[in-house]
Amino acid sequence: MRSLSRRFGTAFLAMPLVVKIALMWLIFIVAAAIYSRLDRLFGQALPLQDPFYQPFLFGEARPVEGPSTAHYLGTDVLSRDNLARLLHGAWVSLIVAATVVSFGLVFGGFIGAFVGYTRGKVETVTMATLDVILAFPPLVLLLALVAVYKVRNLTMIALVFGVLGIPTYVRIARASTLGVAGREFVQAAEAIGTKRTAILFREIIPNIMPALFAYALINAGYVIVIEGTLSYLGLSVQIPEPTWGNMINEGRRDIRQTILPIFWPGLFLTLSVVSLNLVGDWLQQRVAVRSSAL
């Protein structure tokens, strides 16, 4: 445990400054997303404004839209607190991205390693099947699916994203497996008669994970963009649940007067994707360096 935190510490220190900042932003977003939900999980009021509260409905004055001490990032077209909505919106992005990544790493990683190591007909059939899903531009397939089946709750959206995300992970895992399977340590294990399942789990999968994980970070950024796009089109999570995408959509109504209601969610969205890309790129380089050194 201690060595793990020390390893993390050294890794963090080794990061270039931008990557450090990026990582901290990501940690902030994850923390904010979880924090925004603590309310609903434990039923206690946190010092965060209600993202649904529209003061003017209850006879209070309508706050100005710009930033103020009462609303640090101003309010949206329905006078709701932008900051609260942004943090709540982070949850949707987080859940969708986390689902895709975990599905990808677990199922995609396993399937890819399995077919890459065993080869043969199973591999051919699996890859051909996945090619069909990969034959659609991702956004178009998601649009058709989500729209046609009227998927509106977060669990279902996350599941659809998660399942459709698997094929790419399989491809990458398989490609890495093909490389790893030829290595000396695998051949050595085979030579001493280690069971193939054991090789798969002890040798192959641990060795393909770093590359897969680096991809997962970049993929998470992509997923957040796609979810944002669907939300923007009004085809993702049901309102009034805030998402960055639907906040942009709602903000477009008053774009002639102010860009702020679009600017904030746009900034959060872009910064999060930038951060994921930066950390992912950095990790990818390190993985590449390490595997070339092996």
Binding site: L57, F58, V77, K150, Q238, I239, P240
Partner: peptide, 24 residues
Amino acid sequence: IAAVQVSEQLWTATGMVDVTLTNY
């Protein structure tokens, strides 16, 4: 969409209504 979010907020605030919004 703006209008239903107003009604939803007003009804929910009573603590006696569980409002589900849908758009089709």
